[in-house]
């Protein structure tokens, strides 16, 4: 017997998704359908660094998910955090990854959904929560049409404008790489709703930051003028 496994009652886990940093398993757990997110040890990383990254993210992700819920953002319910095994037990959210359906849905629905995204991100940022990986892969569209945000593994608590800017910059980039045909309108819609939540002045500041971050990027044709 190696490490104790708090979560195990039966070994009936089904691999749902083999992600880059974690595997998601679907299993029955004390009569409940749960997702177990297990951060796997990476052979390529030094063991010290590996342990440090996995432990940090296993502890912080549930904290962020919990706080997001308090902020009014739908996230999965956390049942158990097993730091030793780098495992998080959480609610299985029924639905589809937004990435897979956003391109093929009717214009009006996409409009609605993007507005919803803006609202949720606004609520997070209003409470100083940074998601850290805002892509449409990390948004689940439930059969009732709700958006549930998942994967806060790269998130942080921060009140800095920079962090909010990077967060939205990542979302914009995600639109541009996977949904490039509608990227512009999607992002504009997100920002409209975002502004309604955080306030127009605040939204304008963040948007200005997003532009600055873009210009900071390499080889952007328009540079900030030196005043």
């Amino acid at each position: 017997m190696g490490t104790t496994n708090l979560g195990s009652d039966r070994n009936d886990a089904v691999l749902l998704k083999k992600g880059a940093e974690a595997n998601l398993y679907l299993r029955e757990w004390y009569g409940r359908r749960v997702v177990v997110k297990k951060r796997i040890s990476k052979k390529y990383r030094l063991s010290e660094l590996d342990k440090q990254i996995r432990t940090y993210r296993t502890i912080h992700e549930p904290q962020l998910i919990h706080r997001a819920k308090k902020a009014g953002v739908p996230t999965p319910t956390i049942f158990l955090v097993d730091v030793g095994n780098a495992e998080i037990y959480m609610e299985y959210v029924e639905g589809k990854q937004l990435k897979k359906v956003l391109n093929s849905m009717p214009v009006e629905t996409r409009w609605e959904i993007c507005g919803c995204i803006g609202e949720l991100v606004g609520k997070l940022h209003r409470d100083n929560i940074i998601h850290g990986d805002l892509t449409t892969s990390n948004m689940i569209l439930t059969p009732e049409g709700r958006i549930v945000l998942v994967d806060f593994g790269l998130g942080e608590f921060s009140h800095e404008l920079e962090a909010r800017g990077v967060d939205l910059h990542l979302l914009k980039r995600a639109f541009e790489s996977v949904h490039f045909e509608f990227a512009e309108e999607c992002f504009r819609r997100v920002m409209d709703k975002y502004a309604q939540i955080v306030g127009f002045e605040e939204a304008e500041k963040v948007l200005e930051k997003v532009r600055e971050i873009e210009k900071r990027g390499r080889y952007v044709s328009e540079r900030r003028k030196i005043d």
Partner: peptide
């Protein structure tokens, strides 16, 4: 000896 340094991954960037 590994000396910890800031590890800064933001999404894919």
């Amino acid at each position: 000896r590994y000396i910890p340094l800031p590890y800064s991954v933001k999404g894919m960037d």
